[in-house]
């Protein structure tokens, strides 16, 4: 099936709020204020970061969420080499990280002389979460314009665990390797005020608990006993958004630290095999790739060609879906609902 896309970026006709002019260019590309407001948000964030990083803290200045991918590896390097921070690298092992991602984490943290901790949640629990988010409307559609439901479930877990560690160790900054589009431009730097934000998560957590069970509370919330001791909440900072770099430049920089591109991942991931499944589910449900927003911004900023962006969203190794469905323990009914091969065929629409 041919996807109708903006002729300038790559946003497709299925993307929320999109419209095309007679030349096939989308309303976002035509809006001259979009790039200007993006650049202003980046400049404001740079100012904030230079003020926030003026002081040093013990034992750590920052915890870095390190998935082993190129972006979080580069963020780790930025924190240490450019900003001179003392950091703790934190990885959530979701059971689907490519073997090479672990090698990359070890090589990069060793090269930078950084302490590394890896946390592996209950994998049967995590599989149930991914199954639920893939087959049920757990998250609001608005959240899913920039991320797939499965990735959102995983990243929420990462964020909760990183915040818990930051609060327990009194670490003032949480760094992550998100790029613009994966997060809104005016959320490059934000105060991670758990109690302020928890209202916005309550409904989705209730739906996830209904689907998966009470373990959700343990993994996705922070106990009152910890929150009651909080004097001040940490800032989340996405340093990569402040840089003006092409992907090949990022890869070249992290390669100097020993990072190597893994195999078995799709064009939009450099660490996680599950991404292919999450993308498939998202595209089937919404009709657009969860990476379109992020890639369209890179194209608009001149950091990636449209052709390169298209190659990335189209590089989805669908032959791996059956194996990933096995790894997640999907039932035949769930497979049928997702349009995946089953035997015997059963029908339950999601």
């Amino acid at each position: 099936m041919t996807v109708v896309r903006c002729q300038r970026c790559l946003l497709s006709a299925g993307f929320p709020g999109i419209g095309f002019d007679t030349s096939g260019v989308c309303n976002v590309c035509r809006d001259a204020t979009v790039l200007a407001s993006l650049e202003k948000a980046i400049a404001d964030a740079r100012d904030q970061v230079s003020k926030l990083f003026a002081e040093r803290h013990k034992p750590y200045d920052a915890i870095v969420c390190n998935s082993g991918g190129k972006d979080s590896s580069y963020t780790l390097a930025l924190a240490v080499q450019k900003y001179g921070l003392r950091v703790l690298s934190f990885t959530l092992d979701n059971g689907f990280l490519a073997p090479k991602a672990f090698e990359n984490i070890q090589r990069v943290t060793d090269a930078l002389g950084v302490e590394q901790i890896t946390y592996r949640p209950s994998i049967p629990f995590f599989r149930r979460v991914i199954r639920a988010t893939s087959t049920l409307p757990i998250y609001r559609e608005q959240t899913l314009t920039r991320i797939s439901a499965g990735c959102n479930a995983c990243i929420s877990l990462v964020n909760t665990m990183a915040l818990r560690i930051a609060l327990e160790k009194e670490i003032p900054f949480i760094l992550a390797g998100f790029t613009l589009g994966q997060i809104p431009a005016n959320a490059i730097v934000f105060r991670n005020h758990y109690r302020f934000l928890e209202d916005s998560r309550r409904e989705s957590l209730r739906r996830l608990t209904d689907a998966v069970g009470n373990e959700v509370e343990y993994y996705y919330t922070i106990p009152d006993a910890v929150l009651d001791r909080v004097a001040t909440y940490p800032h989340n900072i996405n340093l990569l958004c402040l840089e003006h770099l092409r992907e090949d430049e990022i890869v070249a920089e992290v390669a100097k630290l020993g990072w190597r591109k893994p195999v078995g991942v799709d064009g939009c991931s450099s660490n996680c095999e599950l991404n292919t499944f999450n993308n498939y589910v998202h595209e089937r449900r919404f009709g657009f790739s969860p990476y379109e927003l992020e890639l369209s911004i890179l194209v608009r900023k001149g950091l990636m060609s449209r052709e390169e962006a298209l190659r990335k969203v189209e590089d989805n190794p669908s032959e791996r879906l059956a194996c990933l469905a096995d790894g997640l323990g999907l039932t035949n009914e769930e497979r049928a609902g997702l349009g995946l091969a089953t035997a015997p065929p059963l029908g339950r629409m999601v």
Binding site: A41, Q142, A187, L197, D199, S200, E203
Partner: peptide
């Protein structure tokens, strides 16, 4: 706005940033 399904946690941060700016 959360209960109306208009914003999520990022939306809340966006509004906060907008108010500040």
């Amino acid at each position: 706005l959360i209960d109306q399904g208009i914003i999520d946690s990022f939306g809340l941060m966006e509004i906060t940033a907008f108010i500040e700016q």
